[in-house]
């Protein structure tokens, strides 16, 4: 698992980058071409006039789709499939949402503060009927901060893998084994940053990890609030995978 030569590190990085590319919902060039395709006033109003539970259900479906791509990404990270099934589940349970948020920064246009959602770029106002403006603002701020780092696709791939493979997650059976995979991914990211002459990014990326934690706990807090208010929607209409991971 632990890369012993430069060639091994290159192979590890190449596998992670390939997995990232093959499991990304949208390609960078595709998104770039669509970057000025914005929702018009009527479309924004249609989202805003949805009820709270309708919009939550809609976003839960979109989020679940994104999580499924992250599961596929994880499967091709070298060493991931050698972990026990319990530990694979434990890592995805806590890490999948964080990787979705990292990936979201690829879908973000900093010039007009919009994110690609449902086929067009949407500002925070599109998500108004979720009734959790603080979470939406925090998520947009995070994407803005990530974009400011101007990461390459390779750097995003390695960082996503590092976010996922974290030996400090709860419920792990074999922490040591996860730690070994984590070290190899860390090695890969360090190698790529060194090659790109951007070693100073490592510190900034670790700062982003702390923000990801707080965003995920805010998401859970909002979900608890929603489930108390709309138990039927949360219980019967949310995608089963969303409930499994977050409820």
């Amino acid at each position: 698992l632990y890369p012993h030569s430069l060639r091994n590190i290159d192979e590890l990085c190449a596998s992670i980058v390939r997995s990232h590319r093959e499991t990304s919902q949208y390609r960078v060039e595709e998104l770039h071409a669509l970057r000025w395709k914005l929702f018009n006033r009527e479309e924004i109003q249609a989202y805003q006039s949805k009820s709270v539970d309708e919009m939550w259900q809609h976003c839960a479906i979109r989020l679940t789709e994104a999580v499924q791509y992250v599961v596929e990404f994880a499967k091709h990270i070298p060493g991931f499939r050698m972990l026990s099934q319990n530990d694979q589940i434990a890592l995805l349970k806590t890490g999948s949402m964080e990787v979705v948020l990292v990936r979201m920064s690829r879908l973000f246009n900093t010039e007009n503060n919009t994110v690609f959602f449902d086929g067009k770029f949407a500002g925070t106002e599109v998500f108004k009927s979720l009734a959790c403006g603080d979470l939406i603002t925090a998520v947009f701020d995070f994407a803005h901060g990530m974009c400011a780092l101007k990461l390459t696709e390779q750097q995003i791939a390695l960082f996503s893998a590092l976010v996922l493979i974290n030996a400090d997650r709860p419920c792990l059976e074999d922490k040591g084994r996860v730690q070994r995979v984590q070290r190899s991914v860390e090695f890969g990211l360090t190698h790529i940053l060194h090659r790109d002459n951007q070693e100073s990014l490592m510190h900034k990326l670790y700062q982003r990890v702390a923000v990801l934690r707080s965003l995920c706990s805010l998401h859970m807090e909002k979900l608890r609030w929603f489930s108390q208010r709309y138990p039927l929607t949360a219980h019967s209409l949310f995608p089963p995978l969303y409930k499994e991971l977050f409820a």
Binding site: Q88, I89, A90, L241, E244
Partner: peptide, 17 residues
């Protein structure tokens, strides 16, 4: 965790293309 995360477990079991 496997018992409580049947869908995720299934997704992990599925062979990837």
């Amino acid at each position: 965790l496997k018992e409580k995360h049947k869908i995720l477990h299934q997704l992990l079991q599925n062979s990837t293309s």
